[in-house]
Design a protein around this nucleic acid. Structure first.
Length: 555
RNA sequence: UGGGGUAUAGCCAAGUUGGUAAGGCAGCGGGUUUUGAUCCCGCCAUUCGUAGGUUCGAGUCCUGCUACCCCAGCCA
Protein backbone atom coordinates (compact mmCIF):
# COMPACT_ATOMS: atom_id res chain seq x y z
CA UNK A 1 0.00 0.00 0.00
CA UNK A 2 1.04 3.61 -0.25
CA UNK A 3 2.48 4.26 3.14
CA UNK A 4 2.85 7.84 4.35
CA UNK A 5 5.94 9.21 2.75
CA UNK A 6 8.00 11.02 5.30
CA UNK A 7 10.31 9.32 7.74
CA UNK A 8 8.84 9.09 11.17
CA UNK A 9 10.33 11.39 13.73
CA UNK A 10 10.53 10.39 17.36
CA UNK A 11 12.73 10.89 20.36
CA UNK A 12 14.75 7.76 19.70
CA UNK A 13 15.62 8.80 16.15
CA UNK A 14 16.57 12.19 17.51
CA UNK A 15 18.95 10.53 19.95
CA UNK A 16 20.44 8.52 17.10
CA UNK A 17 20.80 11.66 14.99
CA UNK A 18 22.72 13.30 17.81
CA UNK A 19 24.91 10.26 18.41
CA UNK A 20 25.71 10.11 14.73
CA UNK A 21 26.44 13.81 14.57
CA UNK A 22 28.74 13.43 17.54
CA UNK A 23 30.56 10.66 15.74
CA UNK A 24 29.79 8.10 18.41
CA UNK A 25 28.95 5.33 15.98
CA UNK A 26 30.03 4.25 12.55
CA UNK A 27 26.71 2.57 11.98
CA UNK A 28 23.54 1.85 13.86
CA UNK A 29 22.71 -1.61 15.06
CA UNK A 30 19.44 -2.55 16.73
CA UNK A 31 17.80 -5.80 17.67
CA UNK A 32 14.34 -7.25 18.15
CA UNK A 33 14.58 -9.58 21.18
CA UNK A 34 11.39 -11.60 21.78
CA UNK A 35 11.20 -14.38 24.32
CA UNK A 36 9.85 -17.42 22.42
CA UNK A 37 7.05 -18.10 24.87
CA UNK A 38 4.08 -17.06 22.76
CA UNK A 39 3.01 -15.60 19.45
CA UNK A 40 3.85 -12.07 18.42
CA UNK A 41 1.09 -9.47 18.64
CA UNK A 42 0.44 -5.99 17.32
CA UNK A 43 2.43 -4.55 20.22
CA UNK A 44 5.46 -6.48 19.03
CA UNK A 45 4.80 -5.11 15.55
CA UNK A 46 5.39 -1.66 17.00
CA UNK A 47 8.77 -2.74 18.32
CA UNK A 48 9.61 -4.59 15.10
CA UNK A 49 8.78 -1.57 12.95
CA UNK A 50 10.79 0.66 15.28
CA UNK A 51 13.91 -1.52 15.35
CA UNK A 52 13.92 -2.72 11.76
CA UNK A 53 12.68 0.64 10.53
CA UNK A 54 15.60 2.44 12.15
CA UNK A 55 18.05 -0.10 10.74
CA UNK A 56 16.65 0.47 7.23
CA UNK A 57 16.53 4.24 7.39
CA UNK A 58 20.02 4.61 8.84
CA UNK A 59 21.50 1.90 6.63
CA UNK A 60 22.34 -0.05 9.73
CA UNK A 61 21.25 -3.52 10.68
CA UNK A 62 18.82 -5.20 12.99
CA UNK A 63 19.26 -8.59 14.59
CA UNK A 64 16.55 -11.02 15.54
CA UNK A 65 17.48 -12.45 18.91
CA UNK A 66 15.48 -14.93 20.88
CA UNK A 67 15.76 -14.09 24.54
CA UNK A 68 15.64 -17.69 25.62
CA UNK A 69 16.91 -17.75 29.18
CA UNK A 70 13.90 -19.43 30.71
CA UNK A 71 13.51 -22.88 29.13
CA UNK A 72 10.52 -23.67 31.33
CA UNK A 73 8.29 -21.28 29.40
CA UNK A 74 9.73 -21.44 25.93
CA UNK A 75 9.24 -23.63 22.93
CA UNK A 76 10.58 -24.10 19.41
CA UNK A 77 7.12 -23.70 17.91
CA UNK A 78 7.18 -20.11 19.15
CA UNK A 79 10.56 -19.38 17.62
CA UNK A 80 9.25 -20.63 14.30
CA UNK A 81 6.08 -18.57 14.46
CA UNK A 82 8.08 -15.48 15.41
CA UNK A 83 10.39 -15.86 12.41
CA UNK A 84 7.40 -16.28 10.14
CA UNK A 85 5.67 -13.22 11.53
CA UNK A 86 8.70 -10.95 11.25
CA UNK A 87 9.15 -12.02 7.64
CA UNK A 88 5.47 -11.56 6.94
CA UNK A 89 5.69 -8.00 8.20
CA UNK A 90 8.32 -7.48 5.54
CA UNK A 91 11.54 -7.41 7.50
CA UNK A 92 14.80 -9.31 7.18
CA UNK A 93 17.14 -9.65 10.13
CA UNK A 94 20.90 -9.41 9.79
CA UNK A 95 22.53 -12.80 9.31
CA UNK A 96 21.19 -15.79 11.15
CA UNK A 97 18.69 -15.51 13.95
CA UNK A 98 20.53 -15.19 17.27
CA UNK A 99 19.74 -16.72 20.62
CA UNK A 100 20.75 -15.52 24.04
CA UNK A 101 21.57 -19.17 24.58
CA UNK A 102 24.32 -18.80 21.96
CA UNK A 103 26.13 -16.83 24.64
CA UNK A 104 25.67 -19.13 27.61
CA UNK A 105 29.37 -19.98 27.70
CA UNK A 106 30.42 -16.35 27.60
CA UNK A 107 27.73 -15.35 30.06
CA UNK A 108 28.98 -17.98 32.45
CA UNK A 109 32.48 -16.62 32.03
CA UNK A 110 31.36 -13.09 32.83
CA UNK A 111 29.57 -14.39 35.92
CA UNK A 112 32.86 -15.90 37.06
CA UNK A 113 34.56 -12.61 36.35
CA UNK A 114 32.14 -10.85 38.68
CA UNK A 115 32.82 -13.46 41.34
CA UNK A 116 36.57 -12.94 40.89
CA UNK A 117 36.08 -9.22 41.34
CA UNK A 118 34.11 -9.81 44.52
CA UNK A 119 31.00 -8.54 42.76
CA UNK A 120 28.93 -11.69 42.88
CA UNK A 121 28.23 -14.38 45.43
CA UNK A 122 26.34 -17.60 45.81
CA UNK A 123 23.42 -17.20 48.16
CA UNK A 124 21.83 -20.21 49.87
CA UNK A 125 19.05 -18.22 51.49
CA UNK A 126 15.54 -19.53 50.99
CA UNK A 127 13.57 -17.53 48.43
CA UNK A 128 11.20 -16.48 51.18
CA UNK A 129 14.07 -15.15 53.25
CA UNK A 130 15.55 -13.39 50.30
CA UNK A 131 12.31 -11.62 49.64
CA UNK A 132 12.00 -10.47 53.24
CA UNK A 133 15.55 -9.19 53.27
CA UNK A 134 15.11 -7.26 50.05
CA UNK A 135 13.11 -4.66 51.98
CA UNK A 136 10.20 -2.77 50.51
CA UNK A 137 9.66 0.20 48.27
CA UNK A 138 10.14 2.50 51.23
CA UNK A 139 12.48 0.47 53.44
CA UNK A 140 16.02 -0.55 52.56
CA UNK A 141 16.98 -4.20 52.34
CA UNK A 142 19.39 -6.10 54.56
CA UNK A 143 22.58 -7.83 53.53
CA UNK A 144 22.49 -11.57 53.12
CA UNK A 145 24.70 -13.62 55.46
CA UNK A 146 26.31 -15.04 52.32
CA UNK A 147 27.22 -11.63 50.98
CA UNK A 148 30.76 -11.71 52.32
CA UNK A 149 31.66 -15.25 51.38
CA UNK A 150 35.21 -15.29 50.05
CA UNK A 151 35.91 -15.45 46.34
CA UNK A 152 37.36 -18.95 46.34
CA UNK A 153 34.30 -20.38 48.05
CA UNK A 154 31.97 -18.54 45.71
CA UNK A 155 33.90 -19.87 42.74
CA UNK A 156 33.62 -23.37 44.05
CA UNK A 157 29.95 -23.08 44.89
CA UNK A 158 29.09 -21.60 41.51
CA UNK A 159 30.95 -24.47 39.91
CA UNK A 160 28.89 -26.92 41.96
CA UNK A 161 25.70 -25.11 40.95
CA UNK A 162 26.76 -25.39 37.36
CA UNK A 163 27.64 -29.04 37.78
CA UNK A 164 24.14 -29.80 38.91
CA UNK A 165 24.96 -30.57 42.51
CA UNK A 166 22.15 -28.42 43.86
CA UNK A 167 18.42 -28.72 43.36
CA UNK A 168 16.34 -25.89 42.00
CA UNK A 169 15.77 -23.13 44.49
CA UNK A 170 18.59 -24.26 46.72
CA UNK A 171 20.86 -21.37 45.83
CA UNK A 172 21.46 -18.65 43.29
CA UNK A 173 24.22 -16.36 42.12
CA UNK A 174 23.69 -12.75 43.08
CA UNK A 175 25.40 -9.57 41.98
CA UNK A 176 26.79 -7.67 44.96
CA UNK A 177 25.52 -4.15 44.44
CA UNK A 178 23.57 -2.26 47.10
CA UNK A 179 20.82 -3.59 49.36
CA UNK A 180 19.77 -0.03 50.20
CA UNK A 181 19.38 1.15 46.64
CA UNK A 182 16.12 2.95 45.87
CA UNK A 183 16.09 0.82 42.72
CA UNK A 184 14.75 -2.54 43.81
CA UNK A 185 16.53 -4.24 40.93
CA UNK A 186 19.88 -3.11 42.32
CA UNK A 187 19.40 -4.83 45.69
CA UNK A 188 21.75 -7.69 44.89
CA UNK A 189 19.76 -9.10 41.99
CA UNK A 190 19.90 -12.80 41.19
CA UNK A 191 21.85 -13.24 37.96
CA UNK A 192 21.94 -17.04 37.74
CA UNK A 193 19.53 -19.63 39.03
CA UNK A 194 19.45 -23.42 39.07
CA UNK A 195 16.99 -24.88 36.62
CA UNK A 196 17.07 -28.56 35.73
CA UNK A 197 15.21 -28.09 32.51
CA UNK A 198 15.65 -29.16 28.93
CA UNK A 199 16.32 -26.20 26.67
CA UNK A 200 15.01 -26.05 23.12
CA UNK A 201 18.39 -24.84 21.85
CA UNK A 202 21.00 -26.14 24.27
CA UNK A 203 19.31 -29.36 25.27
CA UNK A 204 20.55 -30.67 28.61
CA UNK A 205 23.90 -28.94 28.57
CA UNK A 206 22.99 -26.50 31.32
CA UNK A 207 21.24 -26.66 34.65
CA UNK A 208 21.95 -23.05 35.55
CA UNK A 209 20.45 -20.28 33.47
CA UNK A 210 21.26 -16.56 33.47
CA UNK A 211 18.56 -14.04 34.32
CA UNK A 212 17.27 -11.44 31.88
CA UNK A 213 19.03 -8.44 33.41
CA UNK A 214 22.39 -10.15 33.26
CA UNK A 215 21.85 -11.64 29.82
CA UNK A 216 20.31 -8.88 27.83
CA UNK A 217 22.95 -6.20 28.20
CA UNK A 218 25.77 -8.64 27.56
CA UNK A 219 24.05 -10.09 24.52
CA UNK A 220 23.58 -6.57 23.19
CA UNK A 221 27.25 -5.81 23.76
CA UNK A 222 28.42 -9.04 22.16
CA UNK A 223 26.35 -8.27 19.08
CA UNK A 224 27.56 -4.69 18.91
CA UNK A 225 24.12 -3.26 19.41
CA UNK A 226 24.30 0.53 19.56
CA UNK A 227 20.76 1.32 20.64
CA UNK A 228 18.87 -1.21 22.71
CA UNK A 229 15.20 -0.31 22.57
CA UNK A 230 12.70 -1.69 25.02
CA UNK A 231 9.50 -0.74 26.78
CA UNK A 232 8.96 1.59 29.71
CA UNK A 233 8.76 -1.02 32.45
CA UNK A 234 12.50 -1.56 32.02
CA UNK A 235 13.46 1.98 32.92
CA UNK A 236 14.67 1.02 36.38
CA UNK A 237 16.43 -2.02 34.95
CA UNK A 238 18.59 0.33 32.90
CA UNK A 239 20.66 0.97 36.03
CA UNK A 240 21.43 -2.72 36.28
CA UNK A 241 22.01 -2.94 32.54
CA UNK A 242 24.66 -0.26 32.79
CA UNK A 243 26.14 -1.70 35.99
CA UNK A 244 26.77 -5.07 34.38
CA UNK A 245 28.39 -3.57 31.29
CA UNK A 246 30.61 -1.38 33.43
CA UNK A 247 31.76 -4.20 35.64
CA UNK A 248 32.72 -6.85 33.14
CA UNK A 249 35.49 -6.90 30.58
CA UNK A 250 33.70 -6.01 27.42
CA UNK A 251 34.54 -3.20 25.05
CA UNK A 252 31.14 -2.18 23.82
CA UNK A 253 28.65 0.01 25.61
CA UNK A 254 25.23 -0.32 24.11
CA UNK A 255 22.68 2.17 25.43
CA UNK A 256 19.16 1.29 26.43
CA UNK A 257 16.24 3.57 25.61
CA UNK A 258 12.66 2.93 26.61
CA UNK A 259 9.43 3.73 24.81
CA UNK A 260 5.83 3.12 25.82
CA UNK A 261 4.20 -0.12 24.86
CA UNK A 262 1.09 -0.16 22.70
CA UNK A 263 -2.35 -0.52 24.24
CA UNK A 264 -5.26 -1.10 21.89
CA UNK A 265 -8.88 -0.57 22.87
CA UNK A 266 -11.17 -3.57 23.26
CA UNK A 267 -8.41 -6.14 23.29
CA UNK A 268 -5.55 -7.33 25.46
CA UNK A 269 -1.88 -7.28 24.56
CA UNK A 270 -0.20 -9.04 27.41
CA UNK A 271 1.34 -12.42 26.71
CA UNK A 272 -0.11 -13.84 29.89
CA UNK A 273 -3.67 -12.95 28.91
CA UNK A 274 -3.28 -14.03 25.30
CA UNK A 275 -1.97 -17.38 26.49
CA UNK A 276 -5.00 -17.72 28.72
CA UNK A 277 -7.40 -16.94 25.86
CA UNK A 278 -5.78 -19.71 23.83
CA UNK A 279 -5.32 -22.31 26.55
CA UNK A 280 -8.80 -21.91 27.97
CA UNK A 281 -10.33 -21.99 24.49
CA UNK A 282 -11.96 -18.60 24.52
CA UNK A 283 -10.64 -18.40 20.97
CA UNK A 284 -9.81 -21.08 18.43
CA UNK A 285 -6.06 -20.56 18.66
CA UNK A 286 -3.21 -18.06 18.37
CA UNK A 287 -4.35 -17.27 14.84
CA UNK A 288 -8.02 -16.82 15.64
CA UNK A 289 -9.03 -13.81 13.52
CA UNK A 290 -10.25 -12.02 16.63
CA UNK A 291 -6.83 -12.18 18.25
CA UNK A 292 -4.50 -9.15 18.17
CA UNK A 293 -1.65 -11.48 17.26
CA UNK A 294 0.19 -11.05 13.98
CA UNK A 295 -1.08 -14.50 13.01
CA UNK A 296 -4.63 -13.50 13.90
CA UNK A 297 -4.45 -10.24 11.98
CA UNK A 298 -3.02 -12.09 8.99
CA UNK A 299 -5.83 -14.63 9.01
CA UNK A 300 -8.31 -11.81 9.52
CA UNK A 301 -7.10 -10.24 6.29
CA UNK A 302 -4.84 -7.45 7.47
CA UNK A 303 -1.97 -6.82 5.08
CA UNK A 304 1.66 -6.34 6.19
CA UNK A 305 1.59 -2.83 4.79
CA UNK A 306 -1.48 -1.90 6.78
CA UNK A 307 0.12 -3.06 10.01
CA UNK A 308 3.32 -1.16 9.21
CA UNK A 309 1.30 1.94 8.41
CA UNK A 310 -0.52 1.60 11.72
CA UNK A 311 2.79 1.44 13.57
CA UNK A 312 3.93 4.54 11.75
CA UNK A 313 0.77 6.44 12.63
CA UNK A 314 0.75 5.67 16.34
CA UNK A 315 4.29 6.96 16.74
CA UNK A 316 6.85 6.25 19.43
CA UNK A 317 6.87 8.18 22.69
CA UNK A 318 7.10 7.61 26.42
CA UNK A 319 3.47 8.43 27.05
CA UNK A 320 1.10 5.78 28.29
CA UNK A 321 -1.48 5.36 25.59
CA UNK A 322 -4.64 3.57 24.56
CA UNK A 323 -5.07 3.60 20.81
CA UNK A 324 -8.57 3.41 19.34
CA UNK A 325 -9.38 0.43 17.13
CA UNK A 326 -10.54 2.88 14.46
CA UNK A 327 -6.91 3.80 13.87
CA UNK A 328 -6.09 0.22 12.90
CA UNK A 329 -9.24 -0.13 10.83
CA UNK A 330 -8.52 3.06 8.93
CA UNK A 331 -5.15 1.60 7.89
CA UNK A 332 -6.54 -1.61 6.44
CA UNK A 333 -9.43 0.19 4.74
CA UNK A 334 -7.03 2.62 3.13
CA UNK A 335 -4.97 -0.27 1.75
CA UNK A 336 -7.81 -2.48 0.60
CA UNK A 337 -9.87 0.37 -0.82
CA UNK A 338 -7.30 0.86 -3.55
CA UNK A 339 -6.06 -2.73 -3.86
CA UNK A 340 -9.02 -5.02 -3.36
CA UNK A 341 -11.05 -5.96 -6.44
CA UNK A 342 -14.79 -5.58 -5.98
CA UNK A 343 -17.23 -8.43 -6.08
CA UNK A 344 -20.75 -9.12 -4.92
CA UNK A 345 -21.84 -11.41 -2.13
CA UNK A 346 -25.12 -11.79 -0.31
CA UNK A 347 -24.75 -12.71 3.34
CA UNK A 348 -28.37 -12.98 4.47
CA UNK A 349 -30.25 -13.89 1.31
CA UNK A 350 -33.85 -13.58 0.24
CA UNK A 351 -34.93 -14.36 -3.31
CA UNK A 352 -35.74 -11.73 -5.87
CA UNK A 353 -37.76 -13.02 -8.86
CA UNK A 354 -37.80 -10.85 -11.95
CA UNK A 355 -41.10 -11.87 -13.43
CA UNK A 356 -40.70 -10.18 -16.82
CA UNK A 357 -37.26 -11.73 -17.41
CA UNK A 358 -37.48 -14.82 -19.63
CA UNK A 359 -37.44 -18.07 -17.76
CA UNK A 360 -34.42 -20.31 -18.27
CA UNK A 361 -32.29 -17.59 -19.84
CA UNK A 362 -29.03 -16.27 -18.52
CA UNK A 363 -27.47 -12.97 -19.52
CA UNK A 364 -23.78 -12.24 -19.10
CA UNK A 365 -23.09 -8.76 -17.82
CA UNK A 366 -19.76 -6.99 -17.48
CA UNK A 367 -18.78 -5.42 -14.19
CA UNK A 368 -15.71 -3.31 -13.40
CA UNK A 369 -13.39 -4.80 -10.79
CA UNK A 370 -12.81 -1.35 -9.36
CA UNK A 371 -14.97 1.72 -9.82
CA UNK A 372 -12.02 4.13 -9.67
CA UNK A 373 -9.33 2.07 -11.34
CA UNK A 374 -9.92 0.81 -14.87
CA UNK A 375 -6.55 -0.94 -14.87
CA UNK A 376 -8.07 -3.57 -12.62
CA UNK A 377 -10.23 -4.65 -15.53
CA UNK A 378 -13.67 -6.15 -15.66
CA UNK A 379 -15.29 -9.48 -15.05
CA UNK A 380 -18.35 -11.30 -16.32
CA UNK A 381 -21.33 -11.63 -14.01
CA UNK A 382 -24.30 -13.79 -14.87
CA UNK A 383 -27.81 -12.47 -14.50
CA UNK A 384 -31.06 -14.40 -14.70
CA UNK A 385 -34.67 -14.45 -13.61
CA UNK A 386 -33.86 -15.19 -9.99
CA UNK A 387 -31.20 -13.49 -7.93
CA UNK A 388 -30.34 -13.33 -4.26
CA UNK A 389 -30.49 -10.02 -2.48
CA UNK A 390 -29.78 -9.02 1.10
CA UNK A 391 -32.81 -9.38 3.40
CA UNK A 392 -32.04 -6.01 4.94
CA UNK A 393 -32.16 -4.35 1.51
CA UNK A 394 -35.92 -4.83 1.20
CA UNK A 395 -38.81 -3.37 3.13
CA UNK A 396 -42.48 -3.45 2.43
CA UNK A 397 -42.65 0.19 3.40
CA UNK A 398 -40.13 2.80 4.40
CA UNK A 399 -39.51 6.53 4.47
CA UNK A 400 -37.38 8.31 1.86
CA UNK A 401 -34.23 7.89 3.90
CA UNK A 402 -34.26 4.19 3.08
CA UNK A 403 -32.51 4.13 -0.29
CA UNK A 404 -33.09 0.47 -1.06
CA UNK A 405 -35.88 -1.73 -2.41
CA UNK A 406 -39.39 -0.98 -1.21
CA UNK A 407 -42.71 -2.39 -2.41
CA UNK A 408 -43.93 -0.46 -5.48
CA UNK A 409 -40.63 1.40 -5.67
CA UNK A 410 -37.55 1.10 -7.82
CA UNK A 411 -33.93 0.40 -7.06
CA UNK A 412 -30.86 -0.29 -9.19
CA UNK A 413 -29.29 -3.73 -9.05
CA UNK A 414 -25.57 -2.97 -8.97
CA UNK A 415 -23.98 -3.41 -12.40
CA UNK A 416 -27.35 -4.43 -13.81
CA UNK A 417 -30.92 -3.18 -14.24
CA UNK A 418 -33.43 -1.08 -12.42
CA UNK A 419 -36.13 -3.23 -10.86
CA UNK A 420 -39.49 -2.44 -9.26
CA UNK A 421 -40.86 -4.54 -6.41
CA UNK A 422 -44.41 -5.74 -7.03
CA UNK A 423 -45.34 -8.23 -4.31
CA UNK A 424 -43.86 -10.54 -1.69
CA UNK A 425 -44.11 -14.04 -0.38
CA UNK A 426 -43.63 -14.80 3.31
CA UNK A 427 -42.96 -17.81 5.47
CA UNK A 428 -45.11 -19.00 8.38
CA UNK A 429 -43.42 -16.48 10.70
CA UNK A 430 -44.24 -13.60 8.43
CA UNK A 431 -40.71 -13.08 7.18
CA UNK A 432 -40.35 -12.10 3.56
CA UNK A 433 -38.70 -14.96 1.65
CA UNK A 434 -39.27 -13.84 -1.92
CA UNK A 435 -39.82 -10.51 -3.58
CA UNK A 436 -41.40 -10.47 -7.02
CA UNK A 437 -40.44 -7.62 -9.28
CA UNK A 438 -40.22 -6.39 -12.84
CA UNK A 439 -37.15 -4.96 -14.51
CA UNK A 440 -36.63 -2.15 -16.97
CA UNK A 441 -34.66 -3.72 -19.83
CA UNK A 442 -33.54 -0.30 -21.02
CA UNK A 443 -31.54 0.55 -17.90
CA UNK A 444 -28.42 -1.55 -18.32
CA UNK A 445 -25.53 0.87 -18.05
CA UNK A 446 -27.82 3.88 -18.31
CA UNK A 447 -30.48 5.82 -16.50
CA UNK A 448 -34.15 5.27 -17.32
CA UNK A 449 -34.99 6.83 -20.69
CA UNK A 450 -37.88 8.87 -19.35
CA UNK A 451 -35.69 10.68 -16.83
CA UNK A 452 -36.94 8.91 -13.69
CA UNK A 453 -34.46 9.15 -10.88
CA UNK A 454 -33.53 5.95 -9.07
CA UNK A 455 -31.46 6.74 -6.03
CA UNK A 456 -30.76 3.39 -4.45
CA UNK A 457 -28.35 0.69 -5.52
CA UNK A 458 -28.26 -2.77 -4.00
CA UNK A 459 -25.99 -5.74 -4.65
CA UNK A 460 -27.13 -9.21 -5.71
CA UNK A 461 -25.92 -12.60 -6.87
CA UNK A 462 -27.43 -14.63 -9.71
CA UNK A 463 -29.24 -17.56 -8.09
CA UNK A 464 -28.62 -19.94 -10.97
CA UNK A 465 -24.83 -19.72 -10.81
CA UNK A 466 -24.20 -18.56 -7.26
CA UNK A 467 -21.60 -20.29 -5.12
CA UNK A 468 -22.73 -21.03 -1.61
CA UNK A 469 -20.36 -19.64 1.01
CA UNK A 470 -19.87 -19.22 4.72
CA UNK A 471 -19.17 -15.79 6.12
CA UNK A 472 -17.51 -15.15 9.45
CA UNK A 473 -18.20 -11.70 10.81
CA UNK A 474 -16.06 -10.47 13.65
CA UNK A 475 -16.66 -7.92 16.31
CA UNK A 476 -14.46 -6.72 19.13
CA UNK A 477 -13.27 -9.52 21.41
CA UNK A 478 -14.14 -7.56 24.55
CA UNK A 479 -17.03 -5.40 25.62
CA UNK A 480 -14.94 -2.83 27.43
CA UNK A 481 -12.18 -0.53 26.13
CA UNK A 482 -9.63 -1.73 28.65
CA UNK A 483 -10.31 -5.35 29.64
CA UNK A 484 -6.94 -5.58 31.39
CA UNK A 485 -8.21 -3.13 33.99
CA UNK A 486 -11.04 -5.55 34.80
CA UNK A 487 -10.99 -7.73 37.93
CA UNK A 488 -11.00 -10.73 35.65
CA UNK A 489 -10.61 -9.81 32.01
CA UNK A 490 -12.37 -12.92 30.70
CA UNK A 491 -15.60 -11.62 32.22
CA UNK A 492 -15.46 -8.83 29.63
CA UNK A 493 -15.28 -11.14 26.64
CA UNK A 494 -17.85 -10.22 24.02
CA UNK A 495 -20.12 -13.26 23.51
CA UNK A 496 -21.04 -11.95 20.06
CA UNK A 497 -17.52 -11.46 18.76
CA UNK A 498 -18.14 -14.03 16.03
CA UNK A 499 -21.20 -14.32 13.82
CA UNK A 500 -21.36 -17.02 11.19
CA UNK A 501 -23.82 -16.92 8.33
CA UNK A 502 -24.36 -18.70 5.06
CA UNK A 503 -25.05 -17.00 1.77
CA UNK A 504 -23.85 -16.65 -1.80
CA UNK A 505 -20.97 -15.24 -3.75
CA UNK A 506 -20.36 -14.79 -7.47
CA UNK A 507 -19.43 -18.04 -9.20
CA UNK A 508 -15.73 -18.85 -9.34
CA UNK A 509 -14.76 -16.12 -6.91
CA UNK A 510 -12.59 -18.26 -4.67
CA UNK A 511 -10.37 -19.11 -7.63
CA UNK A 512 -9.56 -15.53 -8.56
CA UNK A 513 -7.15 -14.90 -5.66
CA UNK A 514 -6.41 -11.18 -5.79
CA UNK A 515 -2.86 -10.01 -5.12
CA UNK A 516 -3.79 -8.26 -1.89
CA UNK A 517 -5.53 -11.42 -0.72
CA UNK A 518 -8.86 -9.74 -0.31
CA UNK A 519 -12.01 -8.62 -2.05
CA UNK A 520 -14.37 -5.87 -1.29
CA UNK A 521 -17.84 -7.29 -1.31
CA UNK A 522 -19.56 -4.14 -2.39
CA UNK A 523 -21.61 -2.43 0.29
CA UNK A 524 -20.67 -5.01 2.94
CA UNK A 525 -16.93 -4.91 3.58
CA UNK A 526 -13.53 -6.43 2.92
CA UNK A 527 -13.21 -10.20 3.02
CA UNK A 528 -10.50 -12.80 2.63
CA UNK A 529 -10.61 -16.54 2.20
CA UNK A 530 -10.12 -18.55 5.38
CA UNK A 531 -8.00 -21.74 5.44
CA UNK A 532 -11.11 -23.59 6.60
CA UNK A 533 -12.55 -23.21 3.10
CA UNK A 534 -13.68 -26.29 1.20
CA UNK A 535 -13.98 -26.47 -2.61
CA UNK A 536 -17.76 -26.60 -2.32
CA UNK A 537 -18.01 -24.20 0.58
CA UNK A 538 -15.57 -21.31 0.63
CA UNK A 539 -15.30 -19.54 3.99
CA UNK A 540 -14.79 -15.79 4.01
CA UNK A 541 -13.55 -13.76 6.93
CA UNK A 542 -14.73 -10.19 7.10
CA UNK A 543 -11.57 -8.22 7.74
CA UNK A 544 -13.46 -4.98 8.36
CA UNK A 545 -16.72 -3.49 7.24
CA UNK A 546 -17.03 -0.42 5.02
CA UNK A 547 -17.52 2.90 6.74
CA UNK A 548 -21.24 2.94 7.31
CA UNK A 549 -22.90 6.30 7.80
CA UNK A 550 -26.31 4.70 7.31
CA UNK A 551 -25.75 2.51 10.35
CA UNK A 552 -24.99 5.64 12.39
CA UNK A 553 -28.13 7.38 11.25
CA UNK A 554 -30.13 4.31 12.13
CA UNK A 555 -33.72 4.33 10.97
C1' U B 1 9.81 13.76 49.71
C1' G B 2 11.37 5.54 48.56
C1' G B 3 12.91 5.57 43.41
C1' G B 4 11.97 5.81 38.20
C1' G B 5 8.69 7.90 34.41
C1' U B 6 4.61 10.77 31.84
C1' A B 7 1.13 15.04 31.38
C1' U B 8 -0.57 19.23 24.18
C1' A B 9 -8.31 18.21 21.29
C1' G B 10 -12.60 12.17 22.16
C1' C B 11 -7.85 8.98 20.54
C1' C B 12 -2.60 8.90 18.59
C1' A B 13 0.92 12.76 18.10
C1' A B 14 4.34 17.14 16.14
C1' G B 15 6.33 21.11 18.73
C1' U B 16 14.15 20.93 20.99
C1' U B 17 18.77 28.28 20.73
C1' G B 18 11.29 31.14 24.18
C1' G B 19 8.27 34.51 18.89
C1' U B 20 2.28 33.67 18.94
C1' A B 21 -0.44 25.40 18.78
C1' A B 22 1.63 20.41 12.49
C1' G B 23 -0.48 15.95 10.89
C1' G B 24 -3.43 11.46 11.36
C1' C B 25 -7.83 8.81 13.48
C1' A B 26 -12.74 9.82 15.09
C1' G B 27 -16.64 13.50 14.54
C1' C B 28 -19.56 17.37 12.02
C1' G B 29 -21.24 20.13 7.49
C1' G B 30 -21.35 20.32 1.89
C1' G B 31 -20.25 18.40 -3.32
C1' U B 32 -19.48 14.12 -6.81
C1' U B 33 -21.05 8.98 -7.13
C1' U B 34 -24.78 2.61 -10.42
C1' U B 35 -20.99 0.73 -3.30
C1' G B 36 -25.28 5.03 2.28
C1' A B 37 -18.02 3.16 0.01
C1' U B 38 -14.25 5.93 -2.33
C1' C B 39 -12.96 10.87 -3.77
C1' C B 40 -13.27 16.32 -3.10
C1' C B 41 -14.18 20.92 -0.15
C1' G B 42 -14.94 23.08 4.62
C1' C B 43 -15.27 22.94 10.21
C1' C B 44 -13.15 20.86 14.67
C1' A B 45 -7.21 23.60 21.05
C1' U B 46 -7.31 32.12 22.10
C1' U B 47 -4.87 27.09 24.34
C1' C B 48 -0.80 23.10 26.05
C1' G B 49 -2.45 18.82 33.96
C1' U B 50 -2.63 22.97 37.65
C1' A B 51 -1.04 27.56 40.55
C1' G B 52 2.44 31.12 40.50
C1' G B 53 7.16 33.41 38.63
C1' U B 54 10.88 35.31 34.83
C1' U B 55 10.16 37.86 29.99
C1' C B 56 8.14 42.76 25.31
C1' G B 57 6.72 37.61 24.47
C1' A B 58 6.31 30.88 27.64
C1' G B 59 3.60 24.48 25.36
C1' U B 60 8.82 25.62 25.46
C1' C B 61 12.74 28.61 31.22
C1' C B 62 12.03 28.61 37.01
C1' U B 63 9.16 27.22 41.55
C1' G B 64 5.17 24.79 44.02
C1' C B 65 1.15 21.53 43.54
C1' U B 66 -1.99 17.53 41.24
C1' A B 67 -3.02 13.14 38.40
C1' C B 68 -1.62 8.71 36.16
C1' C B 69 1.99 4.60 34.98
C1' C B 70 6.27 1.33 36.50
C1' C B 71 9.55 -1.19 40.46
C1' A B 72 9.66 -5.44 46.34
C1' G B 73 10.09 -13.09 40.34
C1' C B 74 15.47 -17.75 41.54
C1' C B 75 9.77 -14.09 34.81
C1' A B 76 11.03 -11.20 30.61
Amino acid sequence: MAETEHRPTNFIRQIIDKDLAAGQHESIRTRFPPEPNGFLHIGHAKSICLNFGIAEDYQGSCNLRFDDTNPAKEDITFVNSIKEDVHWLGFEWAGEARYSSNYFDQLHGFANELIDKGLAYVDFSAQETMREMRGTLTEPGKNSPYRDTDVATNKAEFAKMTAGEYPEGHCSLRAKIDMTSPFMCMRDPVIYRVKHAHHHQTGDKWCVYPMYDFTHCISDALEGITHSLCTLEFQDNRRLYDWVIENISIDCTPRQYEFSRLNLEYTVLSKRRLIQLVEENYVSGWDDPRMPTIAGLRRRGYTPGSVREFCKRIGVTKMDNMVEMSMLEACIREDLNVNAPRAMAVLNPIKLVIENFPEGETETLTAPNHPNDVSMGTRSVSFSREVWIEAEDFRESANKKFKRLVLDKEVRLRNAYVVKAERVEKDADGNVTTVFCSYDAGTLGKDPADGRKVKGVIHWVDATTAQEAEFRLYDRLFNVPNPAAQEDFVDAINPDSLTVCKGWVEAGLQNSSPACGAWQFERTGYFCLDPDSQPDLPVFNRTVGLRDTWAKIGD
